[in-house]
């Protein structure tokens, strides 16, 4: 309950405050979003599996976002930024999908 409320508050904050993203960080924003989505879906599945842990969630969220951004940053420096971000999106996308599938199985038993 608190979690859903916090998420909604965050969205409202983002829409209302219009935080400006520095130009240098803009390429990493979409990757950070995908990583955050992955962490959120993972947490949701963990809750349904009954193994959720606050500390693991907080650490995994922050680490996911930072590592994803770092990988893309490294790729940019090496000249393979777009390929690496595709890779990150693919890997995280697969994880999001399989976590979403597990959530679906929990909720609908199907």
């Amino acid at each position: 309950m608190i979690a859903a409320l916090a998420l909604a508050v965050g969205v409202v904050l983002g829409v209302v405050l219009h935080p400006t993203v520095p130009v240098g960080l803009q390429p990493y924003l979409p990757i950070a979003v995908v990583a955050a989505l992955d962490a959120v879906f993972g947490a949701l599945r963990a809750i349904l599996d009954g193994v959720f842990d606050d500390k693991v969630f907080v650490v995994s969220f922050i680490a996911n976002v930072l590592v994803a951004a770092l990988i893309v940053f490294l790729g940019d420096q090496l000249g393979v930024g777009s390929q690496l971000s595709t890779g990150v999106v693919v890997v995280l996308g697969i994880r999001i999908f399989s976590n979403a599938a597990a959530i679906r199985r929990h909720l609908f038993r199907a």
Binding site: I2, A3, L5, A6, L7, A8, V9, G10, V11, V12, L13, G14, V15, H18, P19, V21, Q26, L29, P30, A32, V33, A36, L37, A39, V40, D54, F57, V58, F61, I62, V65
Partner: peptide, 19 residues
């Protein structure tokens, strides 16, 4: 902390959409 991180995630989503 969980609430703060989720709020952060929400802000991130909204910011990306707005940007």
């Amino acid at each position: 902390m969980v609430a703060a991180v989720l709020a952060l995630a929400g802000t991130l989503f909204a910011t990306a959409a707005v940007a």
